[in-house]
């Protein structure tokens, strides 16, 4: 066989493959962004343009009136103060829930990764089962338990529910991360006289930045976007944004205002987008720190 026969050109050159790849990515991006684009466009239209029924047309006279109305004057049931009160409710529910469920998951995960016995595997299995049981199946028992201890439809109650429902997930993620951290580090800390909690706090947490950020983002998006638990457990004074958004959209009084609805939906989505953009920088930093860790 000649060398020419061996060094045959591949059927697709690397350049062709690249072009195909980019084409595919662009098409996918357009496909997923198109609905978002429509929502943004229509939130900028005044009602007259909406009434013409041309959903796909660009706004002729773009303005933020619908956004302002969604923010401070749209009706959520009887009150007409817009979605603004919900923002604060969402923040005060989400932040403690994320912090507690992430840190508790980290501690759980570290303990389960350290504890090498059949019991630990059994517990991990049970935790994982918790992941696969749908929320809906657990709602009624949770309602019963919380009303028995007087936490049903209270602020503490909704935070508690988010933490408990989040724990299986955060525990699993952290446990899988900590299984990859060499045992010898914990053993060395033990030789130095550090207790379990001290080791976790001083040595393990500082090397967990990447996974902390990832888990916190996943928890943040999950809890911020939650509707069902907020509706059931938060109580009227603490209804999160998502619930108020639904109330605006499904408000039976007066004419429907699609532009206001869309603006309200966008306002509700802004915090998660902000978190993604900020954390994107964090991710890069985390990766760079990992590179020197060796």
């Amino acid at each position: 066989m000649t060398s020419a026969a061996i060094r045959r050109e591949p059927a697709f050159g690397p350049r062709t493959a690249r072009v195909g790849l980019y084409a595919f990515l662009v098409v996918s991006a357009v496909f997923f962004l198109l609905p978002l684009l429509l929502v943004i466009m229509n939130s900028l239209k005044p009602m007259e343009e909406i009434r013409q029924g041309n959903l796909l047309a660009l706004p002729i006279n773009p303005n933020f009136d619908a956004w302002v109305s969604a923010w401070q004057s749209a009706c959520t049931g009887l009150e007409c103060a817009g979605i603004r009160p919900g923002l604060w409710n969402s923040i005060k529910i989400t932040v403690p829930s994320v912090v507690i469920s992430t840190l508790a998951g980290a501690l759980n995960g570290y303990a389960l990764a350290q504890w090498k016995s059949r019991h630990a595997n059994m517990i991990m299995l049970l935790v994982t089962v918790g992941l696969f049981v749908p929320y809906q199946a657990m709602l009624y028992p949770t309602v019963k338990i919380l009303s028995n201890v007087g936490l049903f439809r209270t602020y503490l109650g909704i935070v508690f529910v988010h933490v408990i429902y989040g724990l299986p997930y955060t525990t699993l993620l952290f446990r899988n991360f900590y299984v990859g951290v060499p045992d010898e580090i914990s053993r060395a800390a033990r030789m130095e006289g550090a207790s379990f909690l001290r080791t976790f706090w001083s040595i393990i947490l500082p090397i967990s930045t990447n996974i902390l950020v990832v888990v916190a983002i996943l928890q943040f998006t999950g809890i911020w976007n939650d509707y069902l638990l907020g509706l059931i457990f938060a109580g009227n004074d603490n209804l999160p944004m998502t619930v108020q958004l639904t109330n605006i959209v499904s408000n039976a009084r007066g004419a429907a205002n699609p532009n206001v609805n869309m603006a309200a939906a966008l306002i509700t989505a802004i915090p998660t987008l902000v978190v993604y953009f900020l954390s994107g920088r964090y991710f890069v930093r985390g990766i760079a720190a990992g590179a020197v860790k060796g």
């Binding site: 010898e184 053993r187 060395a188 030789m191 130095e192 006289g193 001083s202 090397i207």
Partner: peptide, 21 residues
């Protein structure tokens, strides 16, 4: 006794230095 109470020290195969310190 706990390792730290035995008055000895140990060097590990992977060095086991604390990475963030």
């Amino acid at each position: 006794l706990e390792p730290s109470e035995r008055g000895l020290a140990m060097v590990f195969q992977s060095y086991a230095l604390f990475p963030a310190m």
